[in-house]
């Protein structure tokens, strides 16, 4: 599988006695959107945090662009970005200031032009000069997404990116993500509780439960394999089996 931009092998994370992620392996191809689905506590966030170098794996390996994350952290993270419903950005700075700091942090050229683009794309013009503390949660989510796309990453990690958005904005965000993928070959690893979203967005889905991969494939594959109506039924069936 030579076009894999992400290769995760036997990735395990233990916190003391507790195993949060239990020997998972998967690839993400260039331009692929991989959905990470699973009930609360399944280990989705921990997996993403390990892939961002924020949490050290207990064992296993993570390669991106053929490089080992442990040894080439800087080179990899330069090409990667993330957004999460649960993160935030410095409250005392304006939206534009926050984006410009991110631009500097990643050493981007042409920062004002990139910010203009993001503001247009994510419809942020009205609150571009607003202090971040005054944003609604939906606006905050758009800002963190703008922050992630600003650096033109090759891989994007999204932890429940549309959880706090109204359906209209959530829909727009999905359109933008699909467009980024089409235009630049962006690969996305993406967690969500929204089954419909998972079905429409993901090329492939990994179902995680208690740190283990219990199902993997396209939405149709998984639904067919478990003999259910749709992904939501599969989710309920698996979640209640615990």
């Amino acid at each position: 599988m030579s076009s894999a931009v992400v290769e995760v092998r036997h990735l395990t994370k233990r916190f003391g006695e507790f195993t949060a992620v239990d020997g998972i392996s998967f690839d993400i191809r260039r331009g692929e959107i991989l959905g990470l689905l699973g009930p609360n506590g399944a280990g989705k966030t921990t997996t993403l945090q390990m892939m961002l170098g924020l949490v050290t794996p207990t064992s296993g390996s993570i390669h991106m662009f053929g490089l080992d994350l442990q040894r080439h952290r800087g080179a990899i993270l330069q090409q990667v970005n993330f957004s999460s419903t649960y993160m935030s950005m410095p409250y005392a700075l304006t939206v534009e200031e926050n984006l410009s700091i991110i631009g500097r942090l990643y050493g981007l050229s042409d920062i004002p032009r990139r910010i203009d683009d993001m503001v247009k794309k994510l419809e942020m013009a009205e609150w571009r000069h607003t202090l971040t503390r005054k944003l609604s949660s939906g606006q905050m989510t758009r800002l963190t997404l703008a922050k992630a796309l600003l650096t033109e990453p090759k891989i994007l990690f999204l932890d429940e990116p549309t959880a706090s958005l109204d359906p209209d904005i959530a829909n727009k965000i999905r359109t933008i993500l699909l467009e980024e993928r089409r235009a630049s070959g962006l690969s996305i690893l993406y967690t969500s509780h929204n089954m419909r979203e998972m079905e429409t967005m993901s090329d492939r889905i990994i179902f995680l439960q208690r740190g283990k991969i219990v199902a993997e494939g396209t939405a149709q594959d998984i639904v067919a394999r478990f003999g259910q109506e749709d992904l939501e039924d599969v989710f309920l069936k698996l979640a209640r089996e615990q």
Binding site: L54, G74, L77, M87, S88, M89, P90, L105, Y106, K147
Partner: peptide, 13 residues
């Protein structure tokens, strides 16, 4: 500012 995640998931050392 809960900014540590933004910083240390970037190439910042």
């Amino acid at each position: 500012a809960r900014n540590l995640m933004n910083l240390f998931a970037s190439p910042l050392t």
